[in-house]
Amino acid sequence: MIGNDVVDLDLAKVQSNWRRKGYLDKIFSPAEQTLIATADCADEMVWILWSMKEAAYKIDNRITSIRNFAPTNLACSLAFYNDELNGSVSIQDRLYFTKTSVLPNYVHTIATPVYNQITKISIEIYSQPNHPIDYKSLNAGCVSHHGRYLALVY
């Protein structure tokens, strides 16, 4: 089982004001807020962590059938290694491995419960107006759509 989440950074900028009072406390743990406060680019770090949580939630929701909005229960950890942003998200006793790509216009995270599987995931990201006409027929393992971007993983 795989998960993915794309964030269109230009849309996020106008759609969400994460600097709003109380906003970060509802989504991020104190440790995650420290990562944001000390990051070179705080905006980028907010959406890296958010996309990790979303990608992991999409798998967790299918495994457990639990549908809720509890972003602080999804605990992110991050490690930089050879320019790759690897990490994990734990939800109670369940652990998901993640890999995040940060590009100038979007952030994209893939997630899997099986560590070895992360390198085997293939990613297709389309930007408007070049979306496939009927992406549902492509039977992707997980679909994410935000702003100009459509991300499919297999």
């Binding site: 996020a12 969400s16 709003r20 979303e54 549908r67 909005f69 509890a70």
Partner: peptide, 30 residues
Amino acid sequence: INSANLVDIILDVEEAFGITIDNTSMEKML
């Protein structure tokens, strides 16, 4: 609604109704 905006809805609800919504209550607000 974009899930990142659910937080905005919850913050606006807190202001409009003069209440504080803890994370456990927020979990259900879908």
